[in-house]
């Protein structure tokens, strides 16, 4: 109990630093760009327009292709952006971590949170597209925070693992870049799930990202709150990822400094 209390008080003490790190991530990214933060809104809009032009006639079975694509893509972009930048977050701050004691989890966590800020803007872009395309606004749209909350747990876990492993093997970063690309194509983001033959259904069945995306789409496009099973899958994938990440990070963090 006492240990837990002292842990929590440390978390509280560095809460301010976490905030400053998130602000820094966002400021540095858009420094020297004329449109600045507006890019977080423009980027998903522009990629959506391109993808819609390229693929919508191919997948014309989908009633509102722009919304279908964008709802999947903003979630997946959040995940890849957070995990790839978190992978380098410990190594990239080696200079600092070698000099001053700071809880090390702050660095991957700050990357997840600054990506979450971007997701917020991207979500606004999604709403604008829904308005522009005349898509119906379902009341379940208001529940979108639920799959996003599950996903944050999942993403944080993977970010912790990647940031710790990259300290020991810098290859992890490059390898993950390739795997992330593969993952993008194996997730039904710009294509409907119906084009995957039944014998290949494992491609999405064993892909946690599919469940987060499917959850959000069901809220936004179908106006249906997913039942018990999808909720459990999303939550358990998140907890498993966070558990593994927490375990790896905790086991290795005391020796990070020796490997940088």
């Amino acid at each position: 109990m006492r240990k837990l209390y002292s842990r929590l008080s440390v978390v509280w003490k560095y809460n301010n630093l976490l905030k400053e790190l998130v602000i820094r991530d966002i400021k540095v990214r858009y420094r020297k760009s004329v449109l600045g933060l507006l890019w977080t809104l423009l980027y998903p809009l522009l990629t959506m327009i391109i993808t819609t032009i390229v693929f919508s006639s191919l997948f014309n079975t989908l009633p509102n292709y722009a919304v279908y694509f964008l709802s999947g893509s903003i979630i997946f972009s959040f995940h890849t952006e957070a995990t790839t930048s978190a992978a380098m977050s410990i190594v990239g701050n080696a200079g600092l971590l070698k000099k001053i004691y700071i809880p090390k989890y702050l660095f991957p966590l700050s990357r997840v949170l600054s990506s979450l800020v971007n997701l917020g803007f991207a979500f606004v872009a999604l709403l604008l597209v829904m308005l522009a395309t005349g898509a119906p606004f379902k009341p379940t749209l208001l529940l979108s925070f639920i799959p996003i909350f599950y996903l944050i747990i999942f993403t944080t876990g993977l970010s912790l693992s990647l940031s710790a492993l990259t300290v020991y093997f810098r290859d992890v970063n490059s390898l993950y870049g390739v795997l992330a690309l593969l993952w993008t194509y194996m997730t039904p983001i710009f294509y409907p799930i119906s084009i995957i033959q039944d014998k290949y259904s494992w491609i999405y069945e064993w892909n946690p990202m599919y469940y987060y995306i499917d959850y959000l789409r069901s809220l936004i496009l179908e106006g249906v709150m997913p039942g018990m099973v999808p909720n459990l899958i999303c939550l358990l994938c998140g907890i498993a990822s966070l558990g593994i990440g927490w375990f790896i990070f905790n086991r290795t963090q005391n020796r990070f400094v020796l490997y940088m």
Partner: peptide, 23 residues
Amino acid sequence: AGFDYDLTARENIYLNGAILGHS
């Protein structure tokens, strides 16, 4: 050690202060 060289002196004061545990 805690400076970000892309940020201004003003921004670094807050960042570095936070690293040292100040509000």
